[in-house]
């Protein structure tokens, strides 16, 4: 049983006019086995929250705490956060030219497991996970994210989720840019990992459609850098109908 606990988190970015506050006090707890949806308009700070938890150097912590099972996450380097059990499926996965997917996955698995996975079982493991995500095995030899379509990038993120088995996964707009089939395949991948490893999921999305495939236990409406309303799955239906208009008023 793991808990990611975020308390009064305030985060800023450096802009031309100095440090600008983007997250204005976020409180959120995600436990193993729970799925939380964070929904909010563009520019409300959802990715900022995801990146801050993962430790992206662009963001400055201005206040508050983030702990995983009681341990201070904000003090950790980016790789230490991953080793502690956090995973971020990125909205815009980064291209790493010349580094093959297979080399990347194996290096990551080695780092997270503390030893290199046995080559034979590893190859089988990767192949099986790729098959389930409907990915061509030839993918392994391509450079990480280079020339991938939007959908391929997202599948590759979920492939990593399946192989790296974190405690808590943050999925930042994993649904954007996916057609219906790809959305189903990717969602099934997330659901598999939930069942197999009982992970906690923080699902960031702009649209409700992914919630038809991945059922949230909690829905949080995010606007202007903090959570403005919380509820169960039914809150998503309300958003579907009325949109974010009532939350964006100043």
């Amino acid at each position: 049983m793991s808990s990611l606990v975020i308390k009064n988190l305030r985060v800023g970015v450096e802009t031309d006019s100095g440090l600008t506050e983007i997250l204005k006090g976020v409180d959120l707890t995600v436990n193993s086995g729970e799925t939380h949806a964070i929904m909010g308009p563009n520019g409300s700070g959802k990715s900022t929250l995801a990146y801050s938890i993962a430790g992206h150097p662009k963001y400055t912590i201005m206040g508050g705490t983030v702990t995983l099972d009681g341990v201070d996450v904000l003090e950790m380097s980016v790789d230490e956060r991953a080793k502690a059990g956090l995973f971020l499926a990125m909205q815009y996965p980064v291209e790493v030219p010349g580094v093959s997917v297979s080399n990347f996955l194996r290096t990551a698995a080695t780092a997270l497991r503390g030893e290199a996975p046995k080559i034979r079982t590893w190859v089988g493991e990767v192949k099986a996970a790729m098959t389930k995500l409907n990915m061509d095995p030839a993918f392994s030899e391509r450079s990480v994210n280079e020339g991938f379509s939007g959908g391929e990038k997202k599948r590759h993120e979920i492939l990593q989720l399946e192989l790296l088995k974190p405690k808590i996964a943050i999925l930042d707009e994993t649904d954007s840019g996916l057609d219906v089939d790809a959305l189903r395949i990717v969602s099934e991948g997330v659901n598999r990992v939930k069942v197999e490893s009982n992970i906690g999921v923080l699902l960031i999305t702009h649209y409700t459609r992914i919630l038809r495939y991945i059922k949230p236990d909690f829905v949080h409406v995010f606007a202007n850098g903090h959570i403005v309303e919380e509820g169960g799955a039914e809150l998503a239906d309300k958003l579907e109908e009325h949109g974010y208009a009532e939350y964006i008023k100043a």
């Binding site: 993962a54 430790g55 980016v78 790789d79 995973f87 996965p93 980064v94 990551a108 780092a111 997270l112």
Partner: peptide
Amino acid sequence: FYLMSRGIA
């Protein structure tokens, strides 16, 4: 950042 977020030092 991308590589490190996967645990790579």
